[in-house]
Amino acid sequence: MIYFDHAATTLQKPPVVGQAMLAALQTAGNPGRGAHEPTLHAARIVYDTRTALAELFHAEDPACIAFAANATQALNTAIGGLLSPGDHVIATVCEHNSVLRPLYRLREQGVQLSFVGVDDRAVLRYEQFEQLVRPNTRAIVVTGASNVTGHATDLPFVAQVAKKHGLLLIVDAAQTAGSLPIDVQALGIDVLCFTGHKGLMGPQGTGGLYVRPGLRVAPLVVGGSGVHSFAEAHPAEMPTALEAGTLNVPGLAGLGAGVRWLLEQGVEALHTREMALTRSFWEGVREVPGVVLYGTLAAPRAPIVSLNLAGEDSARVADALWEEYGICVRAGAHCAPQMHRALGTVEQGVVRFSFSHQNTEAEVRCAVKAVRALALEE
C-alpha cells in the first residue's frame, strides 16, 4: 500500500505516539479532579502537551492553548464565540466547510459575509482583502492553506490588513499545523485553530485553538471544569474557559508525543522533504496527456497536488488507483464547495495526492507511473 492521503489523516505515526497513548490509558486519571497520583499524572500530561504546542506555535504561554476534539470544533468555538449579529466577516473561497458552515449559520442570525476570490491560477486575489473591508468588519477568517490546491495563504499580508483596520485574524491551520512553520506572535494571529491527526502526527479526536492573551472567546460548551463548582457561570480564565468536561487524556498524550517528535526533527526540515516529493510528483505528471493540474507549483504551498484525467470522474480514478495500484488518495469535493466552483470542478471533483515526509521517492515514482497508465487508458 502507498498512502498519499495525509491531508485527511496522517496514517504512519512515530512509534512514540502510540506508546504514549497506551501508557496514559493505563496510568492517567482525570486531570484537575483530585490530588492523587493518577489525576496529577493526567494533569501533567495535559500541561506538557500544552507546553509543546505553545513552543511549536511560539505562543506567549501554554495557557493560550485550549483543547478540542478537532479543528472543526475549534473553528466553531472561535467563530461562534467572537462574532455577533451586525458584524461583517471576510473569508475566502478556499475555505473548508468547517469555516463556511459556522459562518453561514451566523449569516442567518445577522452576520454579513464577503469572500475573497482566486485568479485563473487558483491563487487568492489579495487586493480584495482591503477592498472588502467595511466599517462594521469584525474579523478575517482564512485557511492557512487550501486543502484542494495546497496553496498557502500569505498570512503576513493578511495579518497586515487585519492590523491596519483593527480586525481579528482567525486562521484555520488544519493543513499547516506541523507542516509549515507558524509563529502566532510574529504574524499577529488572534486565534489559530488546529487538528491533531494531520501534520501534528497525533491521533484522531484531538485538536484545539490558540487564543491571544486578553481576547475573550465565548465558550461553545459549558459544564464541569474541576474548579469553581458552585459558580453558575463557566470559568472565564483560559484554558478552562474553552474546556468543559473531561479531556481526551490518552489522545492528548499521543498528540504531545507527536508534537515533541516534530520539534526534535524540525518542521522546516520535514517540510523541505515533503516539498521535494510534491515537486517530483508534479513534474512527473504535468506533461502526461490528459492530466489537468490545479494551481501552480510556484506558489508557496502545503504538500498537496490535485489533478484530473480529462473528463473522467475523480472517484473512478481514485478507485482505480487503489484497486489496481494500491495507492490511497482522496477524490471528490473535499468539503470545499466554493473552491470547486472557482475551479469549475463541481461535477467532476478532483483527485488529491497529499504527501508526508514519511513517503519516499520510490512511492512517488509508482504514483506517476500509475497516473500515466490510467491516462493512457482514457
Score class of each variant (00 low, 15 high):
L343D: 04
V221N: 09
R134G: 04
P337M: 13
Q112P: 02
R138P: 00
Q73R: 13
Q160R: 05
L215T: 06
H271F: 14
A218F: 13
R365Y: 07
H151W: 15
V227G: 09
L75T: 11
G254T: 00
V148T: 10
L124S: 05
P85V: 03
Y325P: 02
T153F: 06
L124C: 03
Q204Y: 15
D87F: 05
M21S: 02
D119A: 03
L376P: 00
G202P: 04
G32L: 01
C335Y: 12
P289S: 12
T246C: 14
G349L: 08
A231N: 13
D87W: 07
L215C: 08
R134T: 09
A233D: 15
A299C: 01
S179E: 08
E363D: 13
L40D: 03
G349T: 10
F353A: 14
E237N: 12
R260K: 12
R352I: 11
Q128T: 04
H88R: 08
S179P: 05
Q128C: 10
R33G: 10
P181Q: 14
A241L: 09
D313N: 11
C193H: 02
L187P: 06
V184P: 09
R44W: 06
S146E: 08
N76M: 13
E363M: 05
A218P: 00
A173Y: 06
S146L: 01
L277I: 06
V158S: 01
A236K: 09
V350G: 05
